[in-house]
Write a protein that binds this DNA or RNA. Structure first.
Lengths: 112, 112
DNA sequence: GTTTGTACTAACCTAATGGTTCGTAACGTA
DNA sequence: TACGTTACGAACCATTAGGTTAGTACAAAC
């Protein structure tokens, strides 16, 4: 019995899309950051207070990663003390409804 | 300016649902395994050939984890050579459509 | 009688993830 | 003059995720 009946159900383009998705949502904090931003603009310090369990370093690190992925954008104002604002990009807003649906997945598995 | 205007937009139950979701889908291979199973029943060796880049140890490890999470179930037949079959649970099937949508997220960010 | 196939386990290693602590600039406030 | 505030960077460490390699039982095929 050879493998010709084992069709690869995932096309290469589906596979790379999935990998990109995982880049964006995997990690302990990324979805939380995206959800806390939502459609709003928030300062770094606001986000830190909204997600109190994340460490400063990791928050900055994750924000930077999400910017590089094209999910977030950042505006720095030349003020003292510094002011920096973050918000979702157009693409980020576009996928937000799909990401919100992910809570329902967890809910299904938390049902008794 | 105190923090009373920083409403925690995520309720505790939403947060734990999100964490559960991340348990299920995070990791390099879990979504691929779930997608390759889909509505079918597959033997271990079939899965291994359908996801050729995964190592044997990691596939078994991830299958075991997904079983413990309630996403998959497994049937062992007392035969030689051994035969073991995997398929999604009812809950797994229930969230499958939502998980399929995740490819669209990556697609948005892969657009030029 | 040696090899092949199945579904694993065990031992070990590396790279990435997440966390802790400390330090920075320049201003407003006490 | 000392201190708090803001948004970070640097150095360092612990844990986890993922990977490699080897070995197991036992029947069937060659």
């Amino acid at each position: 019995m050879d493998d010709q009946n084992l069709k690869q159900t995932l096309t290469p383009s589906t596979q790379s899309a999935l990998k990109k998705t995982l880049d964006i949502i995997c990690g302990k904090w990324r979805l939380f950051i995206i959800f806390q931003l939502g459609t709003e603009t928030r300062r770094y310090g606001e986000l830190r207070r909204m997600i109190p369990d994340i460490s400063e370093k990791v928050l900055i690190q994750e924000l930077k990663a999400l910017i590089e992925l094209g999910v977030l954008e950042k505006k720095s104002f030349n003020e003292v003390p510094p002011r920096v604002e973050y918000n979702l990009t157009a693409r980020g807003l576009k996928v937000l409804p799909t990401l919100y649906q992910l809570t329902s997945v967890g809910e299904v598995f938390l049902e008794p």
